[in-house]
Design a protein around this nucleic acid. Structure first.
Length: 752
DNA sequence: TATGATTCCATTTTT
DNA sequence: TGGAATCATA
């Protein structure tokens, strides 16, 4: 950011100083949004004299909440801690616990994450004797979550077809089971509060009197209940400030509704509107290109970013033959940029879907370029971590069925499937939690004496641990005792495999974070720890190692890098379209916004790449260049890539040329494409000494004459046709011989 | 109950 | 294609 913190432009200032009443701030990418929010909060405290504890600032991610709090710590020292700053979920959880009775929830409810929810639904679907193929938990969960986002409770759910009639049934039983487990899912955290506020005037009055000012960040991502919540909280004082950018709304698929920001004036006709259009991040060219794409959307608030920054260099479009070629070329470009003085931390590679990362990771490893991939599997999703947490949750709340079922036989203690099945049946019949059913299993004639003993042993184990908790053992102590008394650690140690070692390490990491947690809080209770662990799962690992960052465009929102490369700018890939997905203009508009988010991450340089052929689910797919590239003004784009004439065996060359040239060449290539390998063209390019990119050395090993579609001879199998390149080291190729297809190391083949 | 075989599936992801 | 999840079988 080039704007010094103390200097605000006039729009920013207007947003900061607005005193009372509703306010919408349209904050474009890189327009200093966070600064405006924090300055505004500081202004409210210091100038308007609003007590800090009467200000609520809501964000979507913990990272954003943390950042805001840190910045405010500096702006208004000593006061930041009494501010209400947090995610929707964290704030609601806190309010729900404070008003548990009025909200109809247990004060010590546990929070179920998506996988817990899925586990619960699997059980419900099975208990209802429904076909889990027709009602996959994932789909049912989606429908229930949507209902909660729309503020529709189970009893108010109105099915529109047969499927939904069953969903309604599942939803109802699910809610019963959740209540029996004293559990709330993520959707409940917000919905329950809104629901209670709607039904209970006393509670509504109390909550409406709680804050003087409410601020919401990323308002374009708000869903219906969330909107209802803030609207409800502000109904009396109407001091609601929302900040967002409809052009950066990329979470429609999880309930975000841009109309909440677009139609804000409909709900609050007297709302003051501020547009932050000055960008402090990117070059003019980057902004023009980004605007060219997003401004095609029909339903958007008119606005255009501008900047006093430099004109900058043209956006570079890299045309590639296939995905491996793309990876190698992009990585070579990265190396050149690093040689030119950029640090690895300056570089980010963005892609639309995670699956694209693989090829790039390979290429980066080959090139010895350190990288980190953001996203993917999360630490708290690892089995051993979940196991330990499940124990802790059962200790905290033995009625937590999902957690209990997870650990009832982990490590193996002879409580098998049949036994569990019997216990579950009893629980379902009597409406007990599983733990309650276990406690009564001794009277159940169905169990053998041996089984009863094992069940009693398990109950005793849990009761013992619960006692330690009641006697004031700290969470970390409890965890250590648990690992010891359950034999969990012992089981891992005796395994003595590298996997078990890494599990032990992961558990050690959890224990470490628990120790840390205990030093942070005055009262580090088990329940506080559990809440933190389910609610604060963000990926924000701050690895200081110099490395290139790889992530999805979604994950990049809110970040910025001097150099951004966006891969896979092809139809179907970006804009993405899943198979059998009909064309939905709404979807396309969201893809445009996604592209806009991607492009505006770049400060100085933006590279876009595409491949003409992409390997997808094991098949080669021809790809057309993304319409987003076509939509860019020709003068803004610098083309780099392969060009070949129509003759199949002709020379390839790698050079830069202008847009028209590239387009023509592209058409030709499309018709005549014979699926040359990246390797082939790379080596040809290297030999012909074309400028710009020195293709990586490993490709030469893959080349020499072998091409897709070509007839080849193998000493043992005879003559066949090359149908695919598999890659790897040593490079392999799929050849279909008379008696079937085989994978062959390409060096054993000669052209036939 | 553990392991290999088989089947199924496949944006985006935070809370 | 590849991975996760489920199934089958000793």
């Amino acid at each position: 950011m080039t704007n010094p913190p103390s200097l605000l432009n006039s729009e920013q200032l207007a947003a900061v100083r607005h005193a009372e009443g509703p306010l919408v701030v349209f904050a474009g990418a890189g327009s200093g949004k966070t600064r405006v929010i924090t300055q505004r909060v500081a202004h409210l405290i210091e100038v308007e004299g609003v007590p800090a504890y009467r200000i609520l600032a809501v964000t979507f991610t913990n990272k954003a909440a943390r950042e805001m709090r840190e910045r405010l710590e500096k702006l208004v020292p000593g006061q930041a801690s009494s501010l209400w700053v947090g995610t929707f979920h964290a704030v609601c959880a806190r309010l729900l616990r404070a008003h548990a009775e009025a909200c109809g929830v247990k004060r010590d409810f546990v929070i179920y994450d998506d996988s817990d929810q899925k586990a619960m639904l699997t059980r419900v679907v099975r208990d209802l004797k429904l076909d889990d193929r027709r009602y996959p938990p994932k789909l049912v969960a989606w429908r229930i979550n949507t209902a909660k986002q729309e503020g529709v409770a189970a009893e108010a759910f109105e099915p529109v077809d047969d499927f939904e009639r069953v969903v309604h049934q599942i939803y109802t039983v699910y809610e019963q089971r959740m209540a029996a487990s004293s559990a709330l899912d993520f959707g409940d955290l917000i919905f329950r509060l809104v629901y209670a506020m709607r039904k209970d005037p006393a509670l509504r009055r109390e909550l409406q009197a709680r804050y003087d000012h409410v601020l919401v960040d990323e308002f374009q991502d708000v869903n219906h209940v969330q909107f209802a919540l803030v609207e409800g909280l502000c109904e009396v004082h109407r001091n609601l400030c929302v900040v967002g950018d409809d052009d950066q709304s990329i979470y429609r698929w999880r309930g975000a509704d841009r109309r909440n920001i677009l139609d804000f004036r409909r709900h609050f006709p007297d709302a003051k509107i501020v547009k932050l259009e000055q960008n402090y991040r990117s070059t003019q060219r980057i902004l023009r290109v980004a605007h060219a794409v997003v401004s095609r959307n029909l339903e958007r608030e008119p606005k255009q970013l501008w900047t006093e920054n430099e004109e900058g260099t043209p956006v570079t479009v890299i045309a590639c033959e296939d995905d491996r070629d793309e990876a190698n070329t992009v990585v070579s470009a990265m190396r050149m940029l690093i040689e030119a003085g950029y640090s690895r931390n300056d570089l980010a590679l963005l892609y639309r879907v995670h699956a694209q990362s693989r090829v790039f990771e390979e290429a980066l490893r080959q090139a010895n370029l350190p990288y980190r991939v953001v996203g993917g599997l999360r630490f708290y999703d690892r089995a051993e971590v979940k196991d330990l947490l499940a124990y802790l949750r059962v200790i905290h709340n033995p009625d937590d069925d999902v957690s209990l079922l997870r650990i009832i036989n982990t490590p193996a203690r002879g409580i098998g499937k049949t036994t569990v099945e019997r216990v579950l049946t009893a629980a379902a019949r009597e409406g007990w939690s599983v733990f309650a059913a276990l406690n009564r299993a001794q009277a159940d004639a169905e169990h053998s004496a041996g089984t009863k003993k094992k069940l009693a042993g398990f109950v005793q184990l849990i009761e013992g641990l619960r006692q330690s908790n009641a006697q004031g053992a700290s969470p970390a102590e409890l965890a250590r005792t648990t690992l010891h008394e359950t034999g969990y650690m012992e089981a891992l140690r005796t395994e003595d495999t590298p996997e078990a070692d890494s599990r032990i390490e992961n558990i050690a990491e959890v224990l470490g974070s628990m120790d840390e947690f205990e030093t942070e809080l005055a009262e580090p209770t088990l329940s506080a720890f559990l809440e933190r662990v389910t609610l604060e799962t963000d990926q924000a690992r701050t690895e200081s190692d110099e490395s290139v960052t790889l992530m999805t465009v979604h994950a990049a929102k809110g970040l910025e890098f001097p150099v951004v490369m966006v891969a896979g700018l092809e139809e179907e890939t970006f804009p993405h379209r899943g198979f059998e997905q009909e064309d939905d203009p709404e979807e396309l508009e969201e893809e445009r916004r996604l592209a806009y988010v991607a492009f505006t991450r770049a400060r100085e340089r933006l590279f876009l790449s595409y491949a003409q052929v992409r390997r997808l689910y094991g098949e080669l797919k021809f790809r057309r260049r993304s319409r987003f590239i076509e939509e860019m003004p020709a003068g803004e784009v610098h083309w780099v890539g392969l060009r070949r004439s129509a003759a199949p065996q002709s020379q390839s060359s790698f050079h830069s040329h202008d847009a028209r040239d590239a387009r023509d060449a592209d058409d030709v290539r499309h018709d005549s494409y014979r699926a040359h390998t990246s390797a082939r063209s790379a080596s040809v390019a290297a030999r012909s000494g074309e400028r710009y990119v020195d293709r990586s050395v490993q490709n030469d090993a893959l080349s020499d004459g072998i091409q897709l579609g070509m007839r080849v001879r193998h000493s043992k199998f005879g003559v066949g046709q090359v149908t695919a390149f598999t890659g790897g080291m040593p490079p392999r190729v799929t050849v279909s011989f008379a008696d079937g297809a085989r994978q062959i190391v390409s060096t054993y083949l000669t052209p036939a």
